[in-house]
Nucleic acid binder design. Structure first.
Length: 430
RNA sequence: GGAGAGUUGGCAGAGUGGUCGAAUGCGGCGGUCUUGAAAACCGUUGAGCCGAAAGGUUCCGGGGGUUCGAAUCCCUCACUCUCCGCCA
């Protein structure tokens, strides 16, 4: 949510900025809604003021046993007016709030202008810049490998639940679990994060705070027999909402939380996309990193955060590239986003495996999270950032593909072997 | 699921229809004293919204109601605690 005051005063500038996303801000409507709300507030408050004064007088007169009938009648008239104003105000407030909630975040100056993925700016390649030019087409798809190892099955998962679910068996299941543990251990041991175990079901207030609601309800799983229950699409939601309605002291910042959790996404609108394998599932595991920081430090925090995610890819020795998303590709709540994309040899393409964003004060305003600034002694909104560190299922897929050998076996990255009884290869049925 | 008790400012805790946004204590901040600190003493100390400001308005778990007037009475929901039942 943008600051209505800032929006009011810089409406042209902000409107131009949002245009880069392809978002058209209806300036006149906003100014109208804004003014309407203010006018009604002023009128209502005047009436209340009158009412309060007369009521007070009634109290004083009554204690002196004087006649108060006249005054009581006056208040009754005011009350009638107020009742009308009250409903008028309520709808004006809703209109105002909904308008604000529907506006995406203002983009950082660094964000390149562009419509789609193809305009994203590649910042760096991890090692080999020429992977895309290579002509080795002998790499098999991770689901094929998994199937032929008899350790991956999509059909049975579809029988049990539906499409977009998977079953992992044996050492593949174990490798998946190892990955989650390895990642979160790295963050808590070496990157200064506190591990948090979070609820997987959240209420709509939390989703509103992080920006999934009201606009993206279709992407969520809602629980039917219980009002106001949703499965989390990412641990960002519970992790960030820890701070909702909290005033932190400046000394507490920055706070670094991480969680390994399941994520649930309806994937509405992606029919036919990535139907094979582990890339796009209704249920997947992800290690999430959330930072709550002093606004003065949010830029370097984003760099650090991306570094934390990158470190995982480096330790796993997976080829990747770092990409700065262009204006059209940057998410609703984000001001600036870097994606990490891992090399998937069977697809001959880089695929998103982590997305790291700086939301600045967009979320904290929705969530009402402030810190007490020592210098000014004022309460200010904090900045929030988050990133995946990393998506576990996709990482598993990347490992299977990048570590496959000619015998159809999968080598286990060295750093994961301690989690796997120090075996070196995943073999058929094992 | 049943029965009971509760939810007041950063915390503790008073307040049961009228100058109550709310006593008091602790904590925080500022000061006096001190070489410095502690103690003591004095002062100060919630937030949102509207407003250039003066000021106004709202908030005592959420929502609704009674009343000229509600922290205080009524209804309802949520949460917490105790006891019973069920349960990984």
């Amino acid at each position: 949510m943008l600051d209505p005051r800032i929006l009011r005063e810089n409406i042209d500038q902000i409107s131009d900025n949002l245009k880069k996303r392809g978002f058209t801000l209806d300036k006149d409507s906003f100014l109208l809604v804004d003014k309407n709300r203010k006018d009604i507030i002023a009128e209502t408050e005047n009436l209340k003021n009158k009412k309060n004064e007369i009521s007070k007088e009634i109290g004083i007169l009554k204690s002196k046993n004087s006649d108060v009938n006249n005054l009581v009648k006056k208040v009754e008239v005011i009350n009638d007016e107020l009742e009308y104003k009250h409903t008028e105000l309520a709808s004006a407030e809703v209109e105002f709030k909904n308008f604000l909630l529907s506006i995406p975040n203002v983009l950082d100056d660094l964000v390149p202008t562009g419509k789609s993925e193809s305009n994203n700016k590649i910042i760096k390649y991890s090692n080999d810049e020429n992977l895309e030019k290579s002509t080795n087409d002998n790499y098999r798809d991770h689901s094929d490998i998994g199937k032929s190892l008899n350790l991956y099955n999509q059909e049975i998962a579809a029988k049990i639940s539906s499409s977009r679910f998977s079953l992992l068996f044996g050492n593949l299941a174990r490798l998946h679990r190892a990955l989650g543990s390895f990642m979160i251990n790295e963050h808590i041991n070496n990157h200064g994060y506190t591990e948090v175990n979070v609820p997987l079901i959240v209420n709509s207030e939390s989703l509103l705070g992080t920006g999934q609601l009201p606009k993206f309800k279709d992407d969520l799983f809602e629980i039917k027999n219980k009002e106001n229950f949703f499965l989390i699409p990412t641990a960002e939601v519970p992790l960030t909402n820890i701070f909702r309605d909290v005033i932190l002291s400046e000394d507490e910042l920055p706070i670094h939380y991480t969680a390994l959790s399941y994520c649930f996404r309806s994937e509405a609108g992606s029919y036919g996309k990535d139907t094979k394998g582990l890339i796009r599932q209704h249920q997947f595991e992800k290690v999430e990193l959330v930072n709550a920081v002093n606004p003065n430090h949010s830029e370097e925090s984003l760099e650090a955060l991306v570094g934390h995610a990158e470190k995982i890819l480096e330790l796993l020795n997976l080829p990747y590239r770092k990409v700065l998303l262009c204006s059209g590709d940057t998410g609703f709540s984000s001001s600036i986003t870097y994606d990490l994309e891992v090399w998937m040899p069977s697809q001959h393409a880089y695929r998103e495996i982590s997305s790291c964003s700086n939301f600045k004060d967009f979320q904290s305003r929705r969530l009402n999270v402030k810190y007490k600034d020592k210098a000014s002694k004022k309460k200010k909104y904090i900045h929030t950032l988050n990133g995946s560190g990393l998506a576990v299922g996709r990482t598993l897929a990347a490992i299977i593909e990048n570590y496959q050998n000619n015998d159809g076996e999968v080598e286990i990255p060295e750093i994961l072997r301690p989690y796997m009884n120090n075996i070196k290869f995943i073999k058929n049925n094992l």
